[in-house]
Computed example of a mutant assay.
Amino acid sequence: MQDKSKLQRPPFDPKLAELLPRLEGYVPVNMTTDRINEFRKMPMPSLAEQIGDRPVQCVDYTIPGYGGFELQVSVISRKDHVKPGPGIYHIHGGGMVMANRFAEASVLVDWAMKHDAVCVTVEYRLAPESPDPIPVEDCYAGLQWMDSHAEELRFDPERLVIFGGSGGGGLSAGTTLLARDRKGPKLIGQILQCPMLDDRNETISSYQYDGVGVWDRTSNLTAWTAVLGDRRGTDDVSIYAAPARATELGGLPPTFIDAGAAEVFRDEAVAYASAIWAAGGDAELHVWGGAFHGFYAIAPNSELARSCIAAREAWLERLLTR
Protein backbone atom coordinates (compact mmCIF):
# COMPACT_ATOMS: atom_id res chain seq x y z
CA MET A 1 0.00 0.00 0.00
CA GLN A 2 1.27 3.46 -0.93
CA ASP A 3 2.41 5.64 1.99
CA LYS A 4 0.49 8.83 1.25
CA SER A 5 2.51 10.79 3.79
CA LYS A 6 5.59 10.48 1.55
CA LEU A 7 4.01 11.48 -1.75
CA GLN A 8 5.86 13.81 -4.08
CA ARG A 9 3.87 16.94 -4.83
CA PRO A 10 3.60 19.21 -7.86
CA PRO A 11 5.69 22.35 -7.33
CA PHE A 12 4.36 25.83 -6.76
CA ASP A 13 4.65 28.30 -9.59
CA PRO A 14 7.96 30.15 -8.99
CA LYS A 15 6.30 33.57 -8.81
CA LEU A 16 3.70 32.34 -6.34
CA ALA A 17 6.29 30.41 -4.34
CA GLU A 18 8.12 33.69 -3.71
CA LEU A 19 5.08 34.91 -1.78
CA LEU A 20 4.77 32.01 0.64
CA PRO A 21 7.43 33.11 3.17
CA ARG A 22 5.69 36.50 3.46
CA LEU A 23 2.33 34.81 4.05
CA GLU A 24 3.55 32.75 6.99
CA GLY A 25 1.37 33.44 10.02
CA TYR A 26 -1.29 35.15 7.91
CA VAL A 27 -2.76 32.10 6.18
CA PRO A 28 -4.25 28.99 7.82
CA VAL A 29 -1.48 26.40 7.65
CA ASN A 30 -1.21 23.85 10.47
CA MET A 31 -4.36 25.34 11.99
CA THR A 32 -5.46 23.34 15.00
CA THR A 33 -8.67 23.88 16.94
CA ASP A 34 -6.98 26.14 19.47
CA ARG A 35 -5.82 28.45 16.65
CA ILE A 36 -9.20 29.08 15.00
CA ASN A 37 -9.76 32.28 16.98
CA GLU A 38 -6.25 33.44 16.09
CA PHE A 39 -7.06 33.26 12.40
CA ARG A 40 -10.48 34.83 12.92
CA LYS A 41 -8.71 37.95 14.15
CA MET A 42 -6.68 38.42 10.99
CA PRO A 43 -7.45 41.81 9.42
CA MET A 44 -9.45 41.92 6.20
CA PRO A 45 -10.22 44.85 3.89
CA SER A 46 -13.41 46.66 4.87
CA LEU A 47 -16.30 46.83 2.46
CA ALA A 48 -15.70 50.56 2.03
CA GLU A 49 -12.12 49.83 0.99
CA GLN A 50 -13.32 47.24 -1.50
CA ILE A 51 -15.90 49.62 -2.99
CA GLY A 52 -13.48 52.54 -3.20
CA ASP A 53 -14.83 55.42 -5.25
CA ARG A 54 -17.12 53.28 -7.39
CA PRO A 55 -20.83 54.23 -7.39
CA VAL A 56 -21.94 51.15 -5.49
CA GLN A 57 -24.16 50.93 -2.43
CA CYS A 58 -24.62 48.32 0.28
CA VAL A 59 -27.89 47.84 2.18
CA ASP A 60 -28.13 45.49 5.16
CA TYR A 61 -31.15 43.35 6.00
CA THR A 62 -32.06 41.07 8.89
CA ILE A 63 -33.76 37.90 7.68
CA PRO A 64 -35.02 34.64 9.21
CA GLY A 65 -32.38 31.92 9.21
CA TYR A 66 -32.40 28.24 10.08
CA GLY A 67 -34.28 27.37 13.24
CA GLY A 68 -35.68 30.88 13.63
CA PHE A 69 -32.28 32.51 14.11
CA GLU A 70 -31.92 36.01 12.62
CA LEU A 71 -29.29 36.37 9.89
CA GLN A 72 -27.66 39.43 8.41
CA VAL A 73 -27.39 39.76 4.63
CA SER A 74 -26.03 42.65 2.61
CA VAL A 75 -27.23 43.70 -0.82
CA ILE A 76 -24.58 45.22 -3.06
CA SER A 77 -25.71 47.05 -6.21
CA ARG A 78 -25.01 50.06 -8.36
CA LYS A 79 -26.42 53.32 -7.05
CA ASP A 80 -28.04 53.97 -10.43
CA HIS A 81 -29.51 50.45 -10.67
CA VAL A 82 -33.01 50.53 -12.13
CA LYS A 83 -33.58 47.78 -14.69
CA PRO A 84 -33.73 44.24 -13.25
CA GLY A 85 -30.48 42.50 -14.12
CA PRO A 86 -28.91 39.29 -12.88
CA GLY A 87 -28.82 38.27 -9.23
CA ILE A 88 -25.69 36.80 -7.65
CA TYR A 89 -25.86 35.07 -4.28
CA HIS A 90 -22.53 34.96 -2.47
CA ILE A 91 -21.30 32.62 0.27
CA HIS A 92 -17.97 33.65 1.74
CA GLY A 93 -14.95 31.41 2.28
CA GLY A 94 -12.99 30.71 5.43
CA GLY A 95 -13.37 26.97 5.86
CA MET A 96 -16.80 27.46 7.48
CA VAL A 97 -14.96 28.52 10.64
CA MET A 98 -13.78 32.10 9.95
CA ALA A 99 -14.23 35.31 7.92
CA ASN A 100 -17.45 37.20 7.25
CA ARG A 101 -19.84 38.11 4.46
CA PHE A 102 -17.59 40.89 3.16
CA ALA A 103 -14.63 38.60 2.49
CA GLU A 104 -13.85 38.89 -1.24
CA ALA A 105 -16.77 41.31 -1.69
CA SER A 106 -14.67 43.21 -4.23
CA VAL A 107 -15.73 40.60 -6.78
CA LEU A 108 -19.37 41.45 -6.08
CA VAL A 109 -18.63 45.14 -6.51
CA ASP A 110 -16.98 44.33 -9.85
CA TRP A 111 -20.05 42.38 -10.99
CA ALA A 112 -22.43 45.09 -9.83
CA MET A 113 -20.53 47.54 -11.99
CA LYS A 114 -19.96 45.28 -15.00
CA HIS A 115 -23.27 43.40 -15.20
CA ASP A 116 -25.52 45.72 -13.18
CA ALA A 117 -25.98 42.68 -10.95
CA VAL A 118 -27.71 42.71 -7.58
CA CYS A 119 -25.45 40.76 -5.24
CA VAL A 120 -26.50 39.35 -1.88
CA THR A 121 -23.91 38.09 0.59
CA VAL A 122 -24.96 36.14 3.68
CA GLU A 123 -23.57 36.09 7.25
CA TYR A 124 -24.08 32.40 7.93
CA ARG A 125 -23.18 31.04 11.34
CA LEU A 126 -19.73 29.51 11.76
CA ALA A 127 -18.52 26.23 13.23
CA PRO A 128 -17.65 24.99 15.78
CA GLU A 129 -20.16 27.19 17.65
CA SER A 130 -22.75 26.41 14.96
CA PRO A 131 -22.04 22.95 13.52
CA ASP A 132 -23.72 21.16 10.63
CA PRO A 133 -26.44 21.50 9.43
CA ILE A 134 -26.54 25.15 10.54
CA PRO A 135 -24.06 26.67 8.04
CA VAL A 136 -25.59 25.18 4.90
CA GLU A 137 -29.15 25.65 6.15
CA ASP A 138 -28.43 29.32 6.90
CA CYS A 139 -27.08 29.67 3.38
CA TYR A 140 -30.18 28.06 1.91
CA ALA A 141 -32.40 30.37 3.98
CA GLY A 142 -30.54 33.35 2.55
CA LEU A 143 -30.99 32.07 -1.00
CA GLN A 144 -34.71 31.58 -0.42
CA TRP A 145 -34.99 35.12 0.94
CA MET A 146 -33.16 36.58 -2.03
CA ASP A 147 -35.30 34.68 -4.53
CA SER A 148 -38.56 35.63 -2.82
CA HIS A 149 -37.56 39.32 -2.71
CA ALA A 150 -36.50 39.62 -6.36
CA GLU A 151 -39.00 42.37 -7.11
CA GLU A 152 -38.03 44.43 -4.07
CA LEU A 153 -34.31 43.97 -4.75
CA ARG A 154 -34.86 44.64 -8.47
CA PHE A 155 -33.21 41.65 -10.09
CA ASP A 156 -34.46 39.03 -12.52
CA PRO A 157 -35.17 35.77 -10.61
CA GLU A 158 -34.72 33.89 -13.88
CA ARG A 159 -31.04 34.96 -13.89
CA LEU A 160 -29.91 33.90 -10.43
CA VAL A 161 -26.35 32.61 -9.92
CA ILE A 162 -24.66 31.26 -6.77
CA PHE A 163 -20.99 31.94 -6.09
CA GLY A 164 -18.52 30.90 -3.41
CA GLY A 165 -14.87 30.09 -2.90
CA SER A 166 -13.13 27.63 -0.57
CA GLY A 167 -15.52 26.85 2.32
CA GLY A 168 -18.03 29.09 0.58
CA GLY A 169 -17.59 27.00 -2.55
CA GLY A 170 -18.55 23.86 -0.66
CA LEU A 171 -21.49 25.63 0.94
CA SER A 172 -22.55 26.92 -2.49
CA ALA A 173 -22.48 23.37 -3.85
CA GLY A 174 -24.47 22.13 -0.84
CA THR A 175 -26.99 24.96 -1.14
CA THR A 176 -27.42 24.20 -4.83
CA LEU A 177 -28.13 20.55 -4.00
CA LEU A 178 -30.70 21.65 -1.41
CA ALA A 179 -32.37 23.92 -3.96
CA ARG A 180 -32.52 21.03 -6.42
CA ASP A 181 -33.87 18.47 -3.94
CA ARG A 182 -36.35 20.81 -2.25
CA LYS A 183 -37.49 22.28 -5.56
CA GLY A 184 -36.46 25.66 -4.27
CA PRO A 185 -35.00 28.70 -6.05
CA LYS A 186 -34.03 28.07 -9.65
CA LEU A 187 -30.35 28.75 -10.25
CA ILE A 188 -28.98 29.27 -13.74
CA GLY A 189 -25.39 28.63 -12.67
CA GLN A 190 -22.98 27.97 -9.84
CA ILE A 191 -19.40 29.22 -9.53
CA LEU A 192 -17.26 27.09 -7.22
CA GLN A 193 -13.72 28.38 -6.77
CA CYS A 194 -11.25 26.08 -4.99
CA PRO A 195 -14.26 24.45 -3.31
CA MET A 196 -14.11 22.57 0.00
CA LEU A 197 -16.25 19.53 -0.82
CA ASP A 198 -15.00 16.38 0.93
CA ASP A 199 -14.75 15.79 4.68
CA ARG A 200 -12.96 12.46 4.23
CA ASN A 201 -9.60 13.93 3.21
CA GLU A 202 -8.42 10.76 1.48
CA THR A 203 -7.46 12.21 -1.90
CA ILE A 204 -3.88 12.28 -3.11
CA SER A 205 -3.84 16.08 -3.09
CA SER A 206 -5.05 16.22 0.52
CA TYR A 207 -1.94 14.30 1.56
CA GLN A 208 0.45 16.13 -0.76
CA TYR A 209 -0.16 19.53 0.82
CA ASP A 210 0.29 19.25 4.56
CA GLY A 211 2.27 21.96 6.30
CA VAL A 212 2.78 23.86 3.05
CA GLY A 213 0.83 26.30 0.92
CA VAL A 214 -2.07 28.40 2.11
CA TRP A 215 -4.68 25.93 3.39
CA ASP A 216 -3.21 22.53 4.21
CA ARG A 217 -4.42 19.09 5.23
CA THR A 218 -4.16 19.83 8.96
CA SER A 219 -6.24 23.00 8.64
CA ASN A 220 -8.76 21.14 6.51
CA LEU A 221 -9.15 18.34 9.06
CA THR A 222 -9.54 20.92 11.82
CA ALA A 223 -12.24 22.80 9.95
CA TRP A 224 -14.20 19.70 8.97
CA THR A 225 -14.06 18.44 12.56
CA ALA A 226 -15.41 21.80 13.70
CA VAL A 227 -18.32 21.44 11.27
CA LEU A 228 -19.10 17.74 11.73
CA GLY A 229 -17.58 16.70 15.07
CA ASP A 230 -17.25 12.95 15.51
CA ARG A 231 -19.23 12.36 12.32
CA ARG A 232 -16.35 13.56 10.13
CA GLY A 233 -15.23 10.77 7.84
CA THR A 234 -18.07 8.44 8.84
CA ASP A 235 -21.13 7.37 6.87
CA ASP A 236 -23.26 9.81 8.88
CA VAL A 237 -22.55 12.88 6.73
CA SER A 238 -25.08 14.36 4.33
CA ILE A 239 -24.41 15.39 0.75
CA TYR A 240 -25.42 18.93 1.68
CA ALA A 241 -22.66 19.18 4.28
CA ALA A 242 -20.05 17.49 2.08
CA PRO A 243 -21.20 17.58 -1.56
CA ALA A 244 -18.41 15.21 -2.67
CA ARG A 245 -20.51 12.47 -1.08
CA ALA A 246 -23.33 12.96 -3.59
CA THR A 247 -23.65 9.99 -5.93
CA GLU A 248 -26.16 11.63 -8.27
CA LEU A 249 -25.37 15.06 -9.61
CA GLY A 250 -28.02 15.26 -12.27
CA GLY A 251 -30.32 18.26 -12.42
CA LEU A 252 -27.70 20.84 -11.46
CA PRO A 253 -27.29 24.17 -13.24
CA PRO A 254 -24.25 24.87 -15.42
CA THR A 255 -21.21 24.84 -13.16
CA PHE A 256 -17.82 26.56 -13.17
CA ILE A 257 -15.18 24.87 -11.01
CA ASP A 258 -11.54 25.72 -10.60
CA ALA A 259 -8.68 24.86 -8.27
CA GLY A 260 -4.93 25.08 -8.05
CA ALA A 261 -2.90 22.04 -9.03
CA ALA A 262 -0.81 22.64 -5.89
CA GLU A 263 -3.52 22.59 -3.23
CA VAL A 264 -5.51 20.24 -1.02
CA PHE A 265 -8.79 20.72 -2.92
CA ARG A 266 -7.47 19.84 -6.39
CA ASP A 267 -8.63 16.23 -6.55
CA GLU A 268 -12.07 16.77 -5.04
CA ALA A 269 -12.71 19.64 -7.45
CA VAL A 270 -11.76 17.41 -10.40
CA ALA A 271 -13.91 14.56 -9.04
CA TYR A 272 -16.93 16.84 -8.59
CA ALA A 273 -16.71 18.10 -12.16
CA SER A 274 -16.32 14.51 -13.38
CA ALA A 275 -19.40 13.43 -11.44
CA ILE A 276 -21.43 16.25 -13.02
CA TRP A 277 -20.29 15.13 -16.47
CA ALA A 278 -21.09 11.51 -15.62
CA ALA A 279 -24.64 12.61 -14.81
CA GLY A 280 -24.95 14.37 -18.16
CA GLY A 281 -24.46 17.83 -16.69
CA ASP A 282 -22.70 20.97 -17.86
CA ALA A 283 -19.44 21.81 -16.08
CA GLU A 284 -16.34 23.78 -16.96
CA LEU A 285 -13.22 22.82 -15.01
CA HIS A 286 -9.91 24.65 -14.72
CA VAL A 287 -6.90 23.35 -12.76
CA TRP A 288 -4.16 25.94 -12.59
CA GLY A 289 -0.68 24.44 -12.61
CA GLY A 290 1.52 25.56 -9.73
CA ALA A 291 -1.25 27.48 -7.99
CA PHE A 292 -1.83 27.31 -4.24
CA HIS A 293 -5.23 27.71 -2.58
CA GLY A 294 -6.87 31.08 -3.12
CA PHE A 295 -4.09 32.31 -5.40
CA TYR A 296 -6.51 34.42 -7.44
CA ALA A 297 -7.31 36.57 -4.38
CA ILE A 298 -3.89 36.52 -2.70
CA ALA A 299 -1.90 37.38 -5.82
CA PRO A 300 -4.48 38.90 -8.19
CA ASN A 301 -1.85 40.56 -10.37
CA SER A 302 0.11 37.36 -11.01
CA GLU A 303 -0.03 35.88 -14.48
CA LEU A 304 -1.81 32.78 -13.19
CA ALA A 305 -4.42 34.80 -11.30
CA ARG A 306 -5.12 37.00 -14.30
CA SER A 307 -5.71 33.90 -16.42
CA CYS A 308 -7.94 32.38 -13.73
CA ILE A 309 -10.05 35.52 -13.31
CA ALA A 310 -10.35 35.94 -17.08
CA ALA A 311 -11.65 32.37 -17.44
CA ARG A 312 -14.20 32.90 -14.65
CA GLU A 313 -15.35 36.20 -16.12
CA ALA A 314 -15.68 34.75 -19.62
CA TRP A 315 -17.78 31.86 -18.29
CA LEU A 316 -20.08 34.20 -16.36
CA GLU A 317 -20.41 36.49 -19.38
CA ARG A 318 -21.50 33.55 -21.56
CA LEU A 319 -23.92 32.35 -18.90
CA LEU A 320 -25.60 35.73 -18.50
CA THR A 321 -25.97 36.30 -22.24
CA ARG A 322 -27.54 32.94 -23.09
Rank of each mutant, 00 (worst) to 15 (best):
M1F: 13
R9D: 08
D13G: 03
K15C: 09
R22G: 14
L23S: 11
P28G: 09
T33W: 08
F39D: 04
P45T: 02
P45S: 05
L47M: 13
A48P: 02
P55K: 08
Q57K: 14
T62R: 14
I63T: 09
I63F: 11
G65S: 10
G67K: 09
G67C: 10
D80K: 12
V82M: 12
P84A: 08
G87N: 07
G94E: 02
V97C: 12
F102C: 12
A103C: 09
V118C: 07
V118S: 03
V118I: 12
T121F: 02
D132A: 15
D138A: 03
W145G: 01
H149S: 07
E151Y: 07
L160W: 02
F163P: 00
G165L: 05
S166H: 04
G168T: 03
L171Q: 13
S172C: 06
A179R: 00
R182V: 04
R182T: 11
Q190Y: 05
L197R: 06
D198W: 00
Q208K: 10
G213I: 09
V214S: 00
R217L: 10
L228E: 04
L228P: 07
G229L: 11
R245L: 14
I257A: 00
D258P: 04
F265C: 03
L285R: 00
G290E: 06
N301G: 08
C308F: 02
E313K: 13
